[in-house]
């Protein structure tokens, strides 16, 4: 930032590459904000982690002011506001539409307000990183198929508890060591969205993807209050307009990437099977309830349920 209303240069940073949905969103933001502010606000987009290689660091950088725009998983924002972890609950949403209704409606609005109250962060939009599915050496159809399966899961206590509740044995492996772990069957399975599975070539060894759809992922696109306050009124309007356009663009790019990856996976001979998610939802209900209680988010959870 600089003095309020002068020329402002914003720095947007992501750990992902320039072809990612996040980078696409940032570019849209840049285009719109530069046009709408008559060039008084400019944006520099940094990709490939050159200003911070992981979300942890990007969020910290935003806090200290060395970057202005980032996208992060709820888990990383949870370093500062634990309630945000709510969005990472398995089977919180039943479909993309359900997700959209929630994050673009009252639920999203409430969380945005909560974050603004507790931190100096300002959520600008809810982005996504695909729908996460189970993949492994065998397809699964019901929770019983997960019995004793060693699955690499995300490092969140709730996510782990959910897999345990389903009978699986969650374990932690660094993402870039996963290919070998699968190849040597140190783990039996993992879970991720189509794009990540394809890009890491995990389908070369784990040939079955089962559509468990346990996580319609939410990513938070946000800035800091400090950055926002440094803009004059007209610039702020341009900024918010750009944020909206960026959110649209990023979501579209994410859907597109996922679809492309899905087709490429199919072409590579990966077997994708549908799963009746109802029993999975039921078995993980106690985990969600416990987590919701710990986070103090009972009311919001109720709201999400009602949107189904």
């Amino acid at each position: 930032g600089s003095d309020r209303g002068g020329k402002v240069k914003l720095i947007a940073a992501t750990q992902l590459d320039s072809k990612s949905a996040f980078a696409e969103g940032f570019r849209e933001f840049k285009k719109v904000v530069e046009k709408e502010s008559d060039g008084t606000v400019t944006v520099e987009v940094h990709t490939n982690g050159d200003l911070g290689g992981n979300e942890d660091e990007l969020v910290q950088n935003l806090q200290s002011g060395s970057v202005d725009l980032v996208v992060a998983s709820p888990g990383f924002m949870a370093q500062a506001v634990k309630e945000v972890d709510f969005f990472a609950l398995p089977y919180l949403f039943e479909s993309r539409d359900h997700w959209k209704k929630a994050v673009d409606g009252e639920v999203g609005h409430t969380v945005t307000k909560m974050v603004e109250q507790k931190t100096d962060f300002k959520i600008l939009g809810y982005w996504s990183a695909g729908v996460r599915n189970y993949y492994g050496f065998q397809p699964i159809e019901e929770p019983e198929d997960l019995k004793g399966i060693k699955i690499r899961s995300q490092d969140s206590p709730t996510v782990r508890d959910a897999w345990k509740a389903l009978g699986a044995q969650p374990t932690s492996v660094a993402w870039n060591e996963m290919y070998q772990a699968l190849q040597n069957q140190v783990v039996d399975a993992a879970e991720n969205d189509f794009t990540n599975i394809y890009q890491a070539s995990h389908h070369e060894t784990a040939k079955y993807i089962s559509l468990t759809q346990h996580d319609y992922t939410t990513r938070l696109f946000f800035t800091s209050q400090q950055t926002f306050d440094a803009l004059d009124e007209k610039q702020q309007q341009a900024f918010m307009k750009a944020a909206k356009a960026a959110t649209e663009a990023a979501r579209k790019a994410d859907d597109q990437l996922a679809e492309e990856s899905k087709q490429k996976l199919k072409k590579a001979g990966v077997k994708i099977n549908k799963v009746d998610t109802q029993p999975f939802v039921e078995k993980t209900e106690p985990v969600r309830e416990k987590a919701v209680q710990q986070l103090g988010m009972e009311a919001l959870y109720q709201k999400v349920q009602e949107l189904k």
Binding site: G52, G53, E57, S64, S66
Partner: peptide
């Protein structure tokens, strides 16, 4: 226009890796 603490913060980030 970026905070001076960025240097020290990046030092920390450079070490924040399990490998």
């Amino acid at each position: 226009n970026i905070p001076v603490t960025t240097m020290v913060q990046s030092m920390f980030a450079g070490l924040d890796s399990f490998v």
